[in-house]
């Protein structure tokens, strides 16, 4: 996101603090991304729809508290969305789900020689199932949402170095586990 875009977004947000109708522009812009982010963590369309709506309602309710900290507004929305998902799992006492699109995993992992096959997909699924939740969260934000480490740290309430450490650790595991090249290096 360019600086001009961030500045324009801030103007819309300042306007939204006085007239909530203006927030519609932000809603339209980020709806799909936030929906998919929640959907990946719930694997339930209806639930993702509800939590996504609640995310935007909460954002509107607390918009007066929002302060620009150098990140795009989406970072704040991702943070609220993450909190909503956690709240849901705490209430339902269910097991947290991470569902990732196959295409995204293919994007993440560039195989050195062999072609991508079902067996490899299954291996990656099994491997990811074994990864701790905090590592998957960081991988998800870094590679599937294209967030930088500063933003990830803000969204997950961790330090920037903590975010980097988690990512590199997960990537190292991927490299050694599958003997493959990982497209991104963080």
């Amino acid at each position: 996101m360019s600086e001009a875009e961030i500045r324009k977004e801030q103007e819309v947000i300042e306007r939204s603090k006085k007239e909530p109708q203006a927030f519609g522009e932000i809603y339209e812009h980020y709806f799909d991304r936030i929906f998919n982010y929640i959907y990946r963590q719930t694997d339930d369309e209806e639930l993702a729809g509800d939590l996504c709506s609640q995310t935007f309602v909460n954002a509107l309710n607390h918009l007066h508290k929002y302060e620009f900290r150098g990140f795009p507004f989406s970072a704040w929305l991702y943070k609220i969305a993450g909190n909503e998902v956690n709240k849901h799992y705490r209430k339902s006492k269910g097991k947290k789900v991470f569902s990732i699109e196959e295409l995204k995993v293919k994007e993440l992992v560039e195989q050195a020689s062999d072609g991508w096959d079902e067996e490899m997909v299954n291996k990656v699924i099994n491997y990811m199932n074994e990864l701790p939740t905090d590592m998957i969260q960081v991988l998800e934000l870094r590679f599937f949402e294209d967030k930088d480490f500063k933003e990830i740290a803000f969204i997950l309430d961790i330090t920037e170095s903590g975010a980097k450490m988690r990512t590199y650790r997960a990537l190292d595991k991927l490299r050694t586990h599958f003997h493959i090249k990982v497209k991104y290096n963080g």
Binding site: Y27, F31, Y39, S53, I100, E102
Partner: peptide
């Protein structure tokens, strides 16, 4: 793991800013 992410058309039925505003 899913084959595809939900497309904009797929999420359309959940998109309702009026309800959020209400």
């Amino acid at each position: 793991m899913r084959r595809q992410r939900l497309t904009a058309r797929g999420t359309e039925r959940f998109r309702n800013y009026d309800a959020v505003l209400r």
